[in-house]
Each structure stands twice: as structure tokens, then as C-alpha cells.
Amino acid sequence: MDQQTHDDIEKRVRRLIKEMGVREPPLNMADVVAHLEIDQSFYDINDPTFFDGLRHKMKLGAFKVKGVLQKVGMQALWLPQEDRIVLDAALPKPKHKWVTAHEIGHRLIPTHRHFLFGDTAETLDPEYHEMLEQEANYCASALTFMGKKFTIDALDTLPCWENIHSLQTRYETSATSTLRRYVEHSHNRPMLGIVSTPPWKNETEHKSRCRYFVPSRQFKLRFSKISSDEILPLIKDCVHRARGGPVGTGEFIIGDDWGKHTNS
């Protein structure tokens, strides 16, 4: 995502929050939907009437529409013609806030209006699709964490899991999204967030145990050669098996791009 797109998204989110008059978190997505006058409903992936209605808006048959949604793994969809957001009825409630914010992101970014409609529904280039999703995700994050408000709050804390969890509670967000936002939008120092399956779980649907590798800007500048393959074995030595909650603490040494070694 280029800087111009980044700045435009931030500007649109900032304007929206100002219009709503919200000064403190959490930001209620239902209030955002109401302010933007967007309709919101749920769909059943197995309900033929939903796809029969949708196929008239897309240049595809109902069967192909269902296939498109399943292929890209959509949990929600924004329908520009109706200005309506539809969520998968099977989606767990804790995920409603993020996926709604994501679809609002598609709505706020003007170039996304024809996403998944017309002849792009089947032929959308995978790289272009990924770019659209990245932009919508960035907008969702900026909206959920109220732009610079989260950064101001985060800078008043020391980087540790307890403070990240406290911010998660304050903003009513997931642990993963809060960790990512903290690493990328708080202290100007090398930080790395990793979300992975625990080492004692051998089976995983992901090719790698690492689901998200989130370096801060300073980390990327100083430790550009560090990868999850190098970090995960070091983390493994610091944790113990547990059903939930903290599983361990520890320190290890990693080398930066200039051969200097730092405790992590």
C-alpha cells in the first residue's frame, strides 16, 4: 500500500470519527453503520434465495456467486447498489466488529465500489484482490482503534503483554488486532509480534506454525534478515504447555543486520 493510499484512508477515518463526535473508545460499529446509513443483515451460505437475489446484481449465476464467495472465504460482503453489508450467519459474534469494520472500509474507499461485481467477480487478479483486502484491513484497523487515539494511549504504556491486554479491553478488540496495532503504531523502537500455534500442537491447517509475523518499522530497519523460522525455536524454549493464559517468559539473543547482538 503506497503512502498516498495510506494517508487518504487515515483522512477518511479521521473525518468520519469527527463527524460522529466520538472522543473515547470503544467505537461501536453499529453506530458507524447507522451514521453512514448502511443497511446490515445476515445471509446463510446454504440459502438459495439469497444467491438468487444476488445474482441479479452480479453478472453470474447463483451457483457461481456462491462459488465465488466460498473461493475467497468471505465472511461478509458489502453490496454497493443497496449500500448494504451482509454477514455470514455462522460467523461467531466476537468477529462481527472486525468484519463489519472491514466492509465499512470497502465502502469508504472509492476505488472498491465495483469490487466483486460485474466481470471482476470471477477474473479478479489475485494480487489486486489482495491489495483491496489489505486496504480494507488497514481502514478497519484505523477505524476500530480510532486512528491516532490508540497511538496516544499506547505511548503512555510500557511495551508488555499486560498493557496490550489492557488496551484490548479498553477498545473492545481482539488480542491479535490489538497486538498488531500496538507493534505497528506505538513506540518508535524495534518490536516484533508473532501469532502462532503453540509448539505442542503438531497438526495445523496452516503451512507454517506462524500465522502472523508483525515487525515494527524500526525492527524491519534493524533486523531485516530475521524470520519466523529463526524466532519460533527460540520462543519454544521459553514456554510451557498450558490450556490458556500466559505460557512463559524469557530472553534470547538475536543479531541485527550489522552483527550486533541484542537481548529480546
Rank of each mutant, 00 (worst) to 15 (best):
L60I: 13
D153F: 06
T123E: 12
Q75Y: 09
Q81Y: 05
D47H: 06
L192P: 07
I85C: 04
A89H: 06
K225D: 15
E127S: 11
D47G: 03
G259V: 06
E19G: 05
Y43E: 04
R180T: 15
L132R: 05
R209G: 01
F145W: 00
S264C: 15
T178F: 00
F150D: 00
P26C: 10
C210I: 11
T204D: 13
F50P: 02
Q4V: 14
K149L: 05
Q134N: 11
K95T: 02
A76S: 15
L143C: 01
G245Q: 11
T176P: 00
T100W: 00
E122P: 02
T262K: 10
A154N: 02
I194F: 11
L79C: 09
I253H: 07
H114R: 11
D119L: 10
E127G: 01
M191S: 08
A34D: 14
G118C: 00
A121Y: 03
N28Q: 15
D237V: 06
H114A: 13
K97P: 05
Q134Y: 04
E162L: 07
D88Y: 06
M58H: 09
K260E: 15
Y138M: 09
H56V: 03
K18G: 05
E135W: 00
G193L: 07
I45P: 13
T120E: 12
L116V: 08
R12S: 15
E24T: 14
I235F: 08
Q134F: 04
F150E: 07
A89L: 10
E251C: 12
V72M: 08
G255I: 06
E230L: 13
I235N: 01
P26T: 08
I152G: 04
E37P: 01
I9G: 00
L27I: 12
L179N: 06
L167C: 01
